[in-house]
Amino acid sequence: MTTPAINYQYLTEKIKFWGQELGFSQVGISDVDLSEHEAALTSWLENNYHGNMDYMARHGLMRARAKELVEGTLNVISVRMDYLPTDAKFARILKNRDHAYISRYALGRDYHKLMRKRLKQLGEKIKAHCENINYRPFVDSAPILERPLAEKAGLGWVGKHSLLINKQAGSWFFLGELLVDIPLITDTKAENNCGTCVACIKICPTQAIVEPYVVDARRCISYLTIELREAIPEEFRPLIGNRIYGCDDCQLICPWNKFAKLGSEDDFKPRQNLDNIELLTLFAWDEATFLNKTEGSPIRRIGFQSWQRNIAVALGNADFSENNVSALTAKLPKAEAMVAEHIEWAIAQQTLKQQALVKDQNLRLTARLIRSVEKGMPRDA
Rank of each mutant, 00 (worst) to 15 (best):
A106V: 10
L69V: 15
M62C: 06
H37M: 12
M53V: 12
T73D: 00
M56Y: 11
L45K: 11
E71L: 10
Q121W: 06
R147S: 01
W44A: 03
N52V: 13
G108R: 01
N47Y: 06
A40G: 06
S141P: 02
R97V: 01
M115N: 06
S78F: 01
L107G: 03
S43Y: 11
H50V: 05
L69M: 12
G72C: 07
N48P: 04
L122M: 09
D110T: 09
Y101H: 13
H50T: 06
K125N: 10
R65M: 07
N48F: 08
F90M: 06
R58L: 10
D98E: 15
R65D: 13
P143Y: 08
A128Q: 14
R104N: 07
H129C: 11
I102H: 01
M81Y: 04
V79R: 04
F138V: 01
Y111S: 00
L122T: 00
M81W: 06
I126R: 01
N132E: 14
E36F: 07
N132F: 01
L61P: 05
L45H: 09
H59I: 05
E38M: 14
L69I: 15
A153R: 02
N132L: 08
R136P: 02
R109F: 09
V76L: 05
I133C: 03
Q121E: 15
R58Q: 13
V70M: 11
I144Y: 04
D87L: 11
V70K: 02
E131N: 10
H112M: 06
K113N: 09
A88E: 15
C130P: 06
P143G: 05
L149W: 01
R109V: 12
R118G: 02
R118N: 13
L94K: 15
A40P: 07
E68P: 05
Y83D: 00
Y105A: 07
T42N: 11
I144F: 06
L145Y: 00
L122K: 03
N47E: 14
K120P: 02
H99L: 12
I102Q: 00
H50F: 14
M53F: 03
R80Q: 09
L84K: 12
R63T: 09
A106Q: 06
G108I: 05
E71K: 13
P137V: 08
E146Y: 10
I102A: 00
P148N: 10
L84P: 00
L61M: 10
S35I: 08
K67P: 04
K125P: 01
E68K: 09
N52Q: 13
L122C: 10
T42I: 11
N52P: 02
A106R: 05
K89V: 09
V70I: 15
M53L: 15
A40N: 11
I133W: 00
V79G: 02
D140A: 04
F90T: 11
H129S: 12
K125T: 06
E151C: 03
L149T: 03
M56N: 03
N47P: 03
G123A: 08
H112E: 10
V139Y: 02
R136T: 13
A153F: 07
Y83S: 00
A40H: 13
L119H: 07
L41G: 02
Y55S: 06
M56L: 15
